Lab assay of single mutants.
Amino acid sequence: VTLFVALYDYEARTEDDLSFHKGSKFQILNSSEGDWWEARSLTTGETGYIPSNYVAPV
């Protein structure tokens, strides 16, 4: 499992996005959609889309 960590805070703009804070960790579920990845937050357990340029591999 590849884990990613948030580099910045992000406020969701749609109900499909995940809001998160810098330092939040994610499991990436689908990275084939270009700049928006489907991810599960390891902090909240919620699933949604995150901007790929806001995260980096742990």
Rank of each mutant, 00 (worst) to 15 (best):
V1N: 14
V1H: 14
T2H: 12
T2C: 15
T2V: 13
L3M: 10
L3T: 09
L3N: 06
L3A: 07
F4S: 03
F4D: 01
F4P: 01
F4T: 04
V5L: 07
V5Y: 12
A6E: 02
A6F: 01
L7G: 02
L7Q: 05
L7M: 09
L7Y: 03
L7C: 09
Y8Q: 08
Y8N: 06
Y8M: 09
Y8I: 06
Y8L: 08
Y8E: 08
Y8A: 08
Y8T: 06
D9G: 05
D9M: 04
D9C: 08
D9P: 06
Y10F: 09
E11L: 10
A12V: 02
A12K: 08
A12L: 02
R13N: 10
R13C: 14
R13Q: 14
R13A: 11
R13H: 11
T14F: 15
T14Q: 10
E15C: 14
D16L: 14
D16G: 15
D16E: 12
D16R: 15
D16K: 15
D17Q: 15
D17V: 14
D17Y: 14
D17F: 14
D17A: 15
D17E: 15
L18W: 05
L18S: 01
L18Y: 05
S19W: 03
S19V: 02
S19F: 03
S19K: 04
F20L: 04
F20W: 01
F20E: 00
F20T: 00
F20H: 00
F20C: 02
F20I: 03
H21S: 14
H21T: 15
H21I: 13
H21A: 13
K22M: 08
K22G: 04
K22V: 10
K22A: 12
S24D: 15
S24A: 14
Q27I: 15
Q27D: 07
Q27N: 06
I28L: 06
I28H: 00
I28N: 01
I28M: 04
L29G: 03
L29K: 05
N30Y: 07
S31A: 13
S31C: 15
S31K: 13
S31Q: 13
S32T: 12
S32Q: 13
S32I: 10
E33I: 11
E33K: 14
E33S: 14
G34F: 09
G34I: 10
G34W: 09
D35R: 07
D35T: 10
D35P: 10
D35C: 14
D35S: 09
W36K: 11
W36D: 03
W36H: 07
W37F: 07
W37K: 03
W37P: 00
W37Y: 09
E38S: 08
E38D: 05
A39V: 14
A39Q: 00
A39H: 00
R40H: 09
R40G: 01
R40W: 08
S41W: 04
L42I: 13
L42C: 14
T43L: 12
T43M: 10
T43D: 14
T44I: 02
G45S: 05
E46F: 08
E46G: 05
E46K: 12
E46S: 07
T47R: 10
T47G: 03
T47K: 09
G48Q: 02
G48W: 03
Y49A: 05
Y49I: 09
Y49N: 07
Y49V: 07
Y49D: 02
I50M: 02
I50T: 00
I50D: 00
I50C: 05
P51V: 02
P51M: 06
P51G: 03
P51A: 04
P51R: 07
S52G: 07
S52R: 12
S52I: 06
S52C: 13
S52T: 06
S52D: 02
S52W: 08
S52Q: 07
N53H: 12
N53S: 14
Y54G: 05
Y54D: 01
Y54T: 05
Y54W: 07
V55K: 00
V55R: 00
V55E: 01
A56I: 12
P57W: 05
P57D: 05
P57Y: 06
P57H: 06
P57K: 08
P57I: 08
P57A: 10
V58R: 03
V58N: 05
